[in-house]
Write a protein that binds this DNA or RNA. Structure first.
Length: 190
DNA sequence: CACACGATGCGCT
DNA sequence: GCGCATCGTGTGG
């Protein structure tokens, strides 16, 4: 569907940076998942950063069986199950030992991939993809991409959390169809 | 071992 | 706008 500039996966050093930096940098990049003969590919237009803040699974910097991958090497997938029926896909950030991940919330160019759970369903992502190394290429990887001229990034608060609600750790491309919530209210740039 | 609840989305009102 | 589906995870007894 979308033709990428380079077919190479983003390297580990791209992800091994502060979570907020990676979150912002992922906008415009392409999430790719090979399913059989086809590659399901979408352009990332909405993300949220999670580190060791109160809304994060790694809150308190306490590793558990579930969140352990968030403390490991950057560039791995963190897929978790929630609400008894949904999966959410994250990319691990920061240097090893430092918890962090970016929740991918919306894609352009792939039908039905707006919202983190819908995105996983559309791309066929589930618990099998947890801990997968995204820098190793197939079946799951991310390709470099950039924002187009005139595209604006909105930085605002994260969705669906009850603590740390003041942190503006959500980024999205203004006006994109793949954005889960169209709160044009907060249309400042970042 | 029991239990409350969530980084959600859908369908109905 | 609201209730609900549906279950792994974490926390407390």
């Amino acid at each position: 569907m979308t033709v990428s500039v380079s077919a190479r996966p983003l390297p580990r050093r791209f992800f091994a940076r502060p979570t907020l930096v990676v979150a912002r940098a992922l906008l415009g990049c392409h999430l790719c998942h090979r399913v059989g003969r086809t590659v399901r590919r979408g352009r990332i237009v909405e993300v949220e950063a999670y580190t060791d803040d109160d809304a994060s699974h790694s809150r308190g910097r306490r590793p558990t069986p579930r969140n352990a991958v968030m403390f490991g090497a950057a560039g791995h997938a963190y897929v978790y199950f929630t609400y008894g029926m949904h999966f959410c896909f994250n990319v691990v950030t920061e240097v090893a030992g430092e918890p962090g991940a970016v929740l991918i919330r919306g894609l352009d160019g792939f039908d039905g991939a707006n919202g983190p759970a819908r995105l996983c369903r559309a791309l066929g992502l589930d618990r099998r993809h947890n801990r997968l190394d995204l820098t190793a290429g197939e079946p799951l990887w991310i390709e470099r991409g950039r924002l187009r001229a005139g595209e604006r990034v909105v930085q605002t608060t994260r969705v669906g959390i009850r603590t740390a609600v003041d942190l503006r750790w959500r980024f999205y491309v203004a006006g994109s169809a793949g954005v889960s919530r169209r709160d044009r209210a907060a249309e400042g740039t970042a």
